[in-house]
Simulated assay, not measured.
Amino acid sequence: MRRIGRRFQRARRRRRLPPGVGPRNRTLMFGLANPDRFMRFTRPVTPVAWVVAGVLLVVGTWLSFTAPGDYQQGDTVRIMFVHVPAASLGLMIYGALGVSSFFALVFRHPLADAAARAAALPGAAYTALALVTGSLWGQPMWGTWWVWDARLTSVLVLFLFYLGYIALRSAIDDEAKAARAAAVLGLVGLINLPIVKFSVDWWNTLHQPASLLRAGGTSLDPVFLWPLLTMMAAFGALFLAIWLSAIRTEIVRRRVMSLRARAAQNA
């Protein structure tokens, strides 16, 4: 046991682990950080995520189209079943990208870097979908496609952070340097998340306040609440399926690149 303790102390000094992280905590925190273990764990999980996402999308779409129209918005209210899940997932995905960037930058876990890279494109797609559906919803309700409202502007900034992350990784040929630069940008972008979330509370905005998660409970009628929750679960399951598949593809790509580099050196 003493020998194991001394080995871990040396590993802590080399990897600069936080003082409170012991062998058991480190196993719990980074158990799936090993690419081989991650590949084994996600092999059966990924197809299940795709099936669950497909089923939830079908059920959510059916509930969305069979729900009655709103007494004020009419059938336009159905845009909510796409807009709200897309906007919520856009925020949550960037949170996952930021956390993954932190672990990639501080602990230098290649799997965390792969997770951050895999989250960028679907996160940008969800955020773009939120912007487009928001404009489609806003035109009949507000009489305009776009206003420089605090919520709309902060979501647009979020979308630009996604594009900046993707562009920065593509602009630098050295993958290690690209990963570090993109991780820094990913961490900086986290500052925008509370601005997006609380913009309707901090400023007098045209965008309506939260109606799903708020103090005192939701203000949505059950005929709208259940289709919305189903679509949010569907969008979440779809992202999980895409994310896991993209991470697995990235691991395989890096292994192939490593094998090619070794073959070139041996040749």
Rank of each mutant, 00 (worst) to 15 (best):
R15F: 01
P18T: 03
L160P: 01
F107P: 10
G20H: 12
D36Q: 05
V196D: 03
D201V: 01
L97F: 07
T144I: 06
A128Q: 04
V84W: 06
D174V: 09
L129T: 12
A241G: 07
V58Q: 03
A67G: 01
E250K: 15
Q265K: 12
T76P: 00
R37N: 08
V55M: 11
R169M: 08
L225N: 12
Q72H: 10
G54M: 13
P222S: 11
L63C: 03
R40F: 06
P44Y: 10
T205M: 00
S170Q: 12
A87E: 00
P85W: 07
H207Q: 09
V52R: 02
A261P: 04
A167L: 15
V132I: 15
Q139D: 04
L229Q: 12
V188A: 15
A263N: 10
G164K: 13
I4Y: 08
R169S: 05
D221H: 15
A267Q: 14
S245V: 02
G134F: 07
R214S: 02
A215E: 10
F107N: 12
G164L: 12
A178Y: 04
A115R: 02
A171K: 04
V45S: 05
F65E: 09
W50E: 14
Y94D: 02
P19V: 01
L212T: 06
F159A: 12
F41D: 01
Y94C: 03
G31T: 04
R24P: 03
F107V: 10
A96T: 09
A246T: 01
